[in-house]
Simulated scan of single mutants.
Amino acid sequence: MKLHSFGVGGLVLPGLAPGAAAQRSELMLFTEDRIRARGIDEVVVAYVCNPEVGWSAVVGYRCNGVDDLPVGDSMVTVPTAYFAHFTNDADDDDPAEDVWDQVELAEKEGRIERAYGGEVATIRSNGETDLFIRLV
Results as ranks from 00 to 15, higher is better:
M28P: 01
V136W: 12
E119S: 12
H4D: 10
F83H: 06
A96T: 03
T87M: 08
Q102P: 00
V99P: 02
D68Q: 10
G72V: 08
R38T: 03
I133N: 02
L13A: 10
L16D: 01
V59W: 00
A84F: 04
A46C: 02
V44S: 01
E52W: 06
A20Q: 04
N50R: 15
T77P: 09
D33V: 12
F6H: 06
A90F: 12
V44M: 05
F30C: 10
H85W: 14
L135Q: 11
D67A: 15
R34Y: 03
M28T: 15
I40E: 08
I133P: 02
D98A: 11
H85I: 14
S56L: 08
A37C: 06
N64V: 11
D89L: 09
S74R: 09
E107G: 10
F132P: 00
D92Q: 13
D33C: 08
R124L: 14
A46K: 00
A115H: 09
E119Q: 08
G39H: 08
L3A: 07
E42Y: 10
D94R: 03
Y116H: 14
V59G: 00
V45A: 00
L11W: 07
M75V: 07
C63K: 15
R24I: 02
D68I: 15
G117M: 03
T77R: 13
G65R: 01
D94F: 04
M75I: 13
N126R: 09
E42F: 10
E32Q: 11
H4G: 10
D98T: 08
V59H: 00
S25V: 02
L11C: 13
I133Q: 02
A81E: 09
R111A: 06
A106M: 10
V78I: 15
G65Y: 04
E128W: 04
R36D: 13
E52V: 15
E26N: 08
E104L: 12
G15T: 15
V66M: 09
S25G: 14
E104T: 11
A21Y: 11
F30E: 15
R62I: 03
I40H: 05
R111P: 01
N64M: 14
T31S: 04
K2G: 10
V48L: 07
A84E: 04
V71G: 05
A115Y: 08
P51R: 02
V43I: 12
T31E: 05
V8W: 00
V99I: 05
H85M: 12
Y82P: 06
G9P: 03
G110F: 03
